[in-house]
């Protein structure tokens, strides 16, 4: 006869729990909660890092660093300052950009060559972005931007370029780039309905 062993009580995480609430538990050392956060955000972290860095190996390294950072500093996440998805996207984007810029800074680039390759990179970024932008809402909202606003925002965000780089690539004055970036993001924000109360 086989004896039945009592199963240890298992805390089943509530799938409806918000990522913000999960991060609260992660901040108290809850690894199971972290696994749930991982499942929700890993694809965005990896995809965004890949978009900026292009190299999948580097993207994976950055994703690993970012996800560990989420674990390490979850207790410092403050819902009053923004959503979990914005916190994690910001962490990811910043780290990917830091890496791409430090490797760029290490490269000694001839200006003429750089400007030609910038144009090529720019085309690749825009093409890649357009290919991947499946989601109707964001695509619809990006469509609402003027082509120049869209180029400026996507080149900066998906391409990880500084606004001085963007000005260089698009051959526009810095002030114009700043204005387009700002007008583009305002329009995007209003279209997506992601105000502070969202």
């Amino acid at each position: 006869m086989v004896g039945r062993r009592e199963a240890a009580p298992v805390v089943v995480p509530d799938p409806a729990e918000t990522t913000e609430a999960l991060l609260g538990r992660v901040g108290r050392g809850d690894e199971a909660a972290f696994e749930l956060v991982y499942a929700r955000v890993a694809d965005v972290v990896f995809g965004l890092a890949r978009s900026v860095l292009r190299d999948p190996h580097q993207a994976e390294e950055v994703a690993q660093e970012v996800l560990l950072e989420v674990w390490r500093s979850a207790a410092r996440f403050d819902e009053a300052r923004g959503s979990a998805r914005a916190w994690i996207a910001t962490l990811t984007h910043r780290r990917a950009v830091d890496r791409v810029r430090s490797s760029q800074a290490a490269r000694n680039r001839d200006n003429a060559v750089a400007s030609r390759s910038n144009e090529r990179e720019y085309d690749e970024v825009v093409e890649k972005v357009e290919r991947r932008l499946e989601a109707e809402r964001v695509r619809h909202c990006l469509d609402g931007l003027t082509p120049r606003q869209r180029d400026t925002v996507t080149l900066a965000y998906y391409g990880g370029r500084s606004y001085t780089d963007v000005a260089d690539v698009l051959k526009l004055p810095l002030g114009t780039v700043k204005t387009r970036m700002r007008d583009g993001l305002i329009r995007l924000r209003d279209c997506l309905g992601v105000g502070s109360d969202a």
Binding site: A42, D43, V44, V45, F46, G47, L48, R50, S51, E60, A63, G82, S83, R85, A86, I88, A89, T90, T92, H93, V129, R132, L133, E134, A135, R137, V138, R139, C141, V153, T154, Y157, Y158, L185, L188, R189, L192, V194, G195, S196, A198
Partner: peptide
């Protein structure tokens, strides 16, 4: 607010890790 909009952009380039 801009960070929330950027997060929406990020979600659109998600790919399987």
């Amino acid at each position: 607010e801009f960070a929330e909009a950027a997060a929406s952009l990020a979600e659109r380039v998600a790919e399987p890790a």
